[in-house]
Computed example of a mutant assay.
Amino acid sequence: MTFPSDFTRPDRSRPEPLWHQAENAVRELIARGTWPDGMQLPNEGKLSELLGVSRITVRHALRNLEQSGLLRREHGRGTFVRRSTVIGGIRGLTSFTQEMAERGLVVGSRILEMIEIPADGEVASALEIADGTPVYRIRRLRAGDDQPIGIQTAYLPASQFPGLLEIEGPIPSLYELLRNRFGVTPRTAREIYRVGAVDGDDAELLDIAAGSPAFIVHRITSGNGKPFEFTISIMRGDRYEIRSKLHL
């Protein structure tokens, strides 16, 4: 196995811990595409030889990369690159775009639909408005590093965001748009995660087989104590994980 000529190898003369240098070296190889999505990494012994560090150092680096979602370990098979997985869990109120950035992925967004409709019971209840109140429905296909990860459908009160449907071009971050254009900042959100199957149309958009498992996420976002967004997300089960730390 060969590395790029300008590849940054761990160097004992540098002040950073060797495990941290080894971790960054693997990140660099993944980011460059030298080690692409799905590739099996060399075993710990070979990595130790290639990087010029001990097996313990390699093990430490791989564990950190697995916890950050860049690698996956399969018992009896080995360690594989998993660049396109987004890991959710206990965190601050973030947008999909922020989640992508935190995982080192390039966000992608394609608008599937932007229309005004009357709010049905579920949407009206979530936004605390009357049934039939005009709302905007914005449906987007979300991706990381050109790989589809989820479909998000956001509902917003039309009266609160006049002219929103007239905005041209992609909407990478809806929160950023609402903050900059309308002065609305998300303060709190409630989320419910369920597991469901993806139907045919959505499965085709997500490039998976119909009936594949997915996280169905309902989020109600508020600013100044009042809900302004209700979003239903369908996140690919093989590219989105939920991890939490539990304490006694």
Rank of each mutant, 00 (worst) to 15 (best):
G52Y: 02
G89T: 03
G69I: 09
D37V: 10
T153P: 00
G78M: 14
V123T: 15
T57L: 11
A158D: 08
H218W: 04
I208D: 00
I129D: 09
P42Q: 15
L41H: 10
F96S: 03
G225E: 10
N180Y: 02
I151S: 06
A158Y: 07
S13Y: 04
R179Y: 08
F230E: 04
R82W: 04
A124W: 07
R77Q: 14
T97F: 02
D201Q: 08
E116H: 01
R32T: 12
R63N: 13
A197C: 01
F3A: 07
S109N: 05
Y155Q: 06
R139I: 08
D202A: 05
A203C: 01
T133P: 03
R14L: 10
G33R: 11
H247Q: 10
G45L: 12
T85E: 07
L248P: 13
P118W: 10
L47R: 10
E229C: 13
L156H: 09
I30Q: 07
H20N: 08
R243W: 03
I171S: 06
D199I: 04
L205K: 02
A61T: 12
R82K: 11
L70K: 12
L177K: 10
V26R: 08
Q147T: 14
G89Y: 01
L50A: 10
R110F: 01
G211T: 06
R77Y: 04
R181L: 02
T188V: 12
K46T: 14
A61G: 09
L18C: 03
E49M: 01
G76Y: 04
I30D: 06
L177I: 14
G169V: 03
V217H: 01
L70G: 03
I151K: 03
S84V: 03
G88H: 04
T94D: 12
V107E: 13
I117A: 10
A154D: 13
G88L: 09
S159F: 08
A158V: 09
G211I: 07
A61Y: 06
P170M: 11
R236N: 01
R27E: 12
R14N: 02
E204R: 07
H247F: 06
L165N: 03
R32S: 11
R72H: 05
P134C: 09
D37R: 09
S222Y: 11
F228Q: 13
I232D: 00
R140V: 08
T97A: 11
E241H: 05
H218S: 11
A189Y: 13
V26K: 08
E23M: 14
R91K: 14
I30S: 05
Q67Y: 10
R63P: 00
S109T: 09
N64E: 15
R140T: 05
L47M: 15
T8S: 06
I192D: 01
G121Q: 09
H20A: 13
R181G: 01
I232K: 01
P148F: 03
D146G: 09
P36I: 14
D202G: 00
A189V: 11
R73P: 01
P172I: 10
T85M: 07
V107A: 12
E44K: 14
I87K: 02
L29Q: 06
I56P: 02
I232E: 01
A126I: 08
L105D: 03
L112F: 03
P227I: 13
M114E: 04
E74V: 15
V217Q: 03
D37Q: 15
R59C: 06
D120V: 12
G196W: 00
R137W: 04
